[in-house]
Design a binder for these strands. Structure first.
Lengths: 186, 186
DNA sequence: CAATCATTGTACCGATCGGTACAATGGAAG
DNA sequence: CTTCCATTGTACCGATCGGTACAATGATTG
């Protein structure tokens, strides 16, 4: 009896582990312990080891946001796209029970290792929101400021709701942010 | 030749290391490497090892916020106290170059270990801001919402400014938050 | 059926982990 | 000067770290 994986099956499992334990806190033995996947398989799919695993996870996160968040914001009705973003984000982060891996990596020295991917993620997210706001009638400066505030607000809400162990904090924060951006559109 | 420390000298050094490397990323050997303090001294002052070191750091952070942030918010002119908070926070976090250790700990499994201290930190911070806002004329609900938004906003700004490696993001975010709270006071 | 080859489990590597034991050190107090 | 004791450096512990080597496995292909 032998379970056979492919790379695409493993990445989401790794994602959850890196999310919960952080980059340094994630060890190969804990990956094996939680997933049943041995070192043989892990190094077969990720010859670069832990760093390549984390990079693959970041790439998958990026791909998900690209199709689920950034692209919808770039076309169609801006009001609707932004409204959809809030609900998608609330689902994705499971109302604050799931953290943002990219944000978490940004906080400690892990940032140095993945600086490019981390920077890109936030730049593109903010830019997508900004462009939607401009299409909705905001001035350039106001749109940028609100986009930054929205993305930062989500990150802050994640920290706070986890710190207080209170999902309501996240949902409430997202609602407040949604109202603020909504009020700026016309 | 022998350098002699006392506990109070060591804690701030540990704080910076935990901030930069995270709890899991901080090893005893890296502490020694960065500070010159050997294991003998570390275990003399912190018999509980790494966990006690981190707890001591959290306690010191708490003490600092208590005297520099929470207490001023509880008495005197509310406008002035809140204005002072923004500048003190901006200095403390070095315009986003220095992260919030408590927020960082909240994001990964480190939270479990220090859940009580982490929860307290944010509860007390939010409550201090809330009470100042109430004194400044806000309704109870509005004050709580704004206080949460302010504290979460700071955390988000730290994540974002580090991710983008851009201090201006932090300063700008804090200014925006300051204006929002200011507008709600009368 | 035979051959191939992607995938996996196991055994191992040196380095580092957090932690302990303890003797040497040296400043402070009598 | 001597005693004391807080503080420190060093040597060591078993466990775990990330990573490598390689033979066994077994599904796919011809």
């Amino acid at each position: 009896m032998k379970t056979v994986y492919e790379r695409a099956d493993i990445v989401p499992l790794l994602a959850e582990i890196f999310r919960e334990l952080g980059y340094e806190g994630t060890s190969l033995s804990r990956i094996t312990e939680r997933t049943g996947i041995g070192k043989g398989s892990l190094y077969h799919f990720f010859p670069g080891g832990k760093a390549e695993m984390a990079a693959a996870v970041l790439a998958e996160v990026d791909a998900w946001f690209e199709q689920a968040i950034y692209q919808p914001l770039g076309k169609g009705d801006a009001h609707q796209a932004i409204a959809a973003m809030w609900t998608d984000v609330n689902d994705y982060f499971r109302s604050g029970r799931r953290i943002c891996l990219v944000g978490a990596f940004a906080l400690d020295e892990t940032r140095e290792r993945f600086a490019a991917a981390i920077g890109d993620y936030f730049i593109r997210w903010i830019d997508a929101v900004r462009s939607a706001l401009v299409r909705a009638g905001c001035s350039e400066e106001e749109a940028l400021a609100l986009a930054e505030e929205g993305v930062a607000g989500i990150q802050g809400a994640l920290v706070l709701s986890r710190a207080l162990d209170d999902r309501a904090v996240f949902t409430r924060s997202v609602e407040t942010l949604a109202k603020r951006l909504d009020a700026a559109m016309r």
